[in-house]
């Protein structure tokens, strides 16, 4: 669906993205993850033909971004970071206008408008002025605008930024529904969002791709050790030494609130041994659970490794 080859963009002397290569298959939901200023929006703008790339090439739906940008724009729905809403327009008029300029035939404008009003839960606010709507509803109007011409690809730039937690949950639910029938590229710097919605993550840092993989793949490739969290009922001074005495345990650190973090070799299934030891020494067990590597850890790890290499 989308193939990107060696894509670069310069803003004056500053290079915003440096030779990106990736592809997105039809029906996939891909997350762009990266800190602010990493080049996520730039990449999206280029894919949506809003600005041209400085170097490299990209094909969207088989069309070239330089030669056939009009064709691409027909097949792509874009929600920029700031939803492009005319604050003084009524929601349904705005959607009808978007439908028109997105190339929806005049006879089907009304049905397209009603379809997205329904899909994005905007039915009750269809007659209201956009500027008077809450941020969450405005964001929905933004998504509705991107959907109006039933594009094959949806590009959503930080769709949940600036929303309150309930609105965020609603928008995520909406995106999940849309994922069933669209190829979606989504950017975010909020990590749990990507874990919830996307099948594949492209981590971008300082204009370069730091990693492309599925979530499981990323976690696996970065995990060299396993970690356990252990909380005894009766903390006693000998716990650290006692645990360290076990086979396959690499280190034990004591944290606040009587918590211990145990680092051990991969697939050592050390829980049984820890439990035996704890019971036999009458430490008791309040909690004993594996710690999985969160996306946050992955992200930090990848981006810091990147900067270590650079420096």
């Amino acid at each position: 669906m989308i193939e990107v080859e060696n894509l670069s963009k310069f803003y004056g002397p500053r290079q915003a993205i440096k030779g990106l290569n990736f592809s997105v298959e039809s029906g996939e939901v891909v997350g762009f993850l990266g800190p602010n200023g990493a080049g996520k929006s730039t990449t999206m703008n280029i894919l949506c033909c809003i600005m041209p790339a400085s170097e490299g090439s990209a094909r969207v739906c088989g069309y070239d971004i330089f030669e056939q940008s009009l064709e691409i724009r027909k097949n792509i729905g874009y929600l920029p970071e700031n939803p492009p809403l005319y604050q003084d327009m009524v929601v349904s008029d705005y959607l009808a206008f978007s439908a028109g300029i997105r190339g929806v035939a005049k006879s089907s404008v009304a049905s397209a408008r009603d379809r997205v009003l329904e899909k994005c839960g905007l039915k009750e606010v269809g007659h209201r002025i956009i500027g008077k709507l809450s941020k969450g509803y405005q964001q929905r109007v933004g998504i509705a605008q991107a959907l109006i011409h039933d594009p094959k690809i949806l590009v959503l730039d930080e769709p949940t930024s600036g929303l309150d937690p309930i609105q965020i949950i609603e928008i995520r639910k909406l995106i999940k529904e849309l994922a069933e029938s669209h190829t979606i590229i989504l950017s975010s710097h909020i990590l749990p969002e990507i874990t919830q919605i996307c099948q594949r993550v492209i981590i971008i840092n300082e204009g370069e791709i730091a990693a492309v993989d599925s979530l499981e793949g990323l976690t696996a490739s970065l995990r060299k050790t396993e970690r356990l969290r252990f909380k005894p009922r009766n903390p006693s001074p000998g716990i650290v030494e006692g645990l360290k005495g076990l086979e396959k345990i690499l280190s034990v650190t004591e944290e606040d609130d009587g918590l211990f973090q145990i680092e051990c070799e991969l697939e050592s299934n050390i829980q049984d041994k820890v439990a035996e030891l704890a019971l036999s020494n009458q430490w008791g067990i309040v909690e004993l659970s594996p710690l999985s590597l969160t996306l946050e850890d992955i992200f930090l790890k990848l981006t810091t490794e990147e900067s270590e290499v650079a420096s």
Partner: peptide, 14 residues
């Protein structure tokens, strides 16, 4: 200023 120009630029119009 209101970034609505992106709507026009991302639409298939000249």
């Amino acid at each position: 200023k209101s970034k609505t120009i992106t709507l026009l630029l991302s639409s298939p119009i000249h």
